[in-house]
Amino acid sequence: MSLRFSKMHGIGNDFVVLDGRRLPPALSETQIRAIADRRCGVGFDQLLSVEPARDPSCAVYYGIWNADGSPSGQCGNGVRCVAAWLHRAGALGIGETVRLESPSGPVAVRLLAADRVAVDMGEPDFAPAASGFDGHSQALELGPDTVEIGVVSMGNPHAVVSVSDLAQPSLATWGPALTTHPRFAHGVNTGFVQRLAHDHLRLRVHERGSGWTLACGTGACAAMAVLHQRGQVGDRVQVELPGGTLQIDWGGAGHALWMTGPAAFVFEGEWL
């Protein structure tokens, strides 16, 4: 059987999107890894499936799988692409706000333009258990180095490390080491953030299951949330990633965090 798909990206974080509204796909981990192969397959950071909603208050459900075939709970750049995909399919109009159901629960999306989406990512959860973290000291040993992290869940787990220079060579080893650190029960997405101003951050993310990516929407949310909690940034921040820039708005505890950014179509294809 052939499998029709859309190739999309959100500031370089790229996706294969499947239409499962009539028949949700049943792909094995091996099949997902084959499609993710950038030489012999299509290539993606995450695979997204648009399916009937389980929650009647939501328009659709979207499943998320990493390039290694493992499932993911949330994907900030991915949900923007799902919203743009629904618009092109005639299921979401410009200016509309709808709820979409993720593996981590409902999220609200507002379509600002055909290629620009704002997403209510919910309130950041700083409880260690929400990220599968053992809850002890947030100073982690990485060989001869000790690294201070901030831990937060945005529907998926994040470790945020403040650095003065994103080009420092140690990050090449710190990223994979933190992502698979045994103190996180299910692995973690690791973000290295450089504070440029009270409203401007620069970020690199090593994602569990995908490695270094050009962008990570939940990673941008996590970085802003950790620095906001420390009083180092204001309520609106531009987060600059290798693939582009996201706007993150958060008023602090008791408020939902909103992420705004683009979504782009690349091509349509058929997996044979």
Rank of each mutant, 00 (worst) to 15 (best):
M1S: 15
L3V: 12
R4D: 15
F5N: 04
G12V: 06
F15S: 01
G20S: 05
R22L: 15
R22E: 15
R22F: 12
P25S: 04
A26C: 14
L27D: 08
L27I: 04
E29D: 15
T30W: 13
Q31L: 13
Q31F: 11
Q31G: 09
Q31V: 13
R39P: 10
R39S: 13
C40E: 14
V42N: 05
Q46V: 09
L48G: 01
S49A: 14
V50G: 04
V50N: 01
E51I: 06
D55I: 11
V60D: 08
Y62C: 04
I64Y: 08
W65M: 12
N66E: 11
N77R: 00
V82K: 00
V82T: 01
A84V: 07
L86W: 03
R88Y: 11
E96Y: 05
S102M: 12
P103F: 01
P103C: 02
V109L: 00
A114T: 12
D115F: 03
R116M: 13
V117P: 01
A118V: 07
F133N: 01
E141C: 14
G143Q: 07
D145G: 07
T146I: 13
G150E: 09
G155W: 00
S162E: 15
V163M: 00
S164Y: 02
L166W: 05
A167S: 15
P169N: 07
G175Y: 01
L178E: 06
F184N: 06
H186Y: 12
G187H: 02
G187I: 02
V188A: 04
N189E: 05
G191Y: 08
V193G: 10
R195H: 10
H198A: 15
D199L: 01
H200N: 13
R202K: 13
R202Q: 15
R204S: 10
E207D: 07
E207G: 00
R208N: 09
R208E: 08
S210K: 07
H228Q: 14
Q229F: 09
V233S: 02
G234F: 08
G234S: 04
R236M: 13
V239L: 02
G243C: 07
G243A: 06
A256S: 14
W258E: 13
P262C: 05
A263K: 01
G269Y: 06
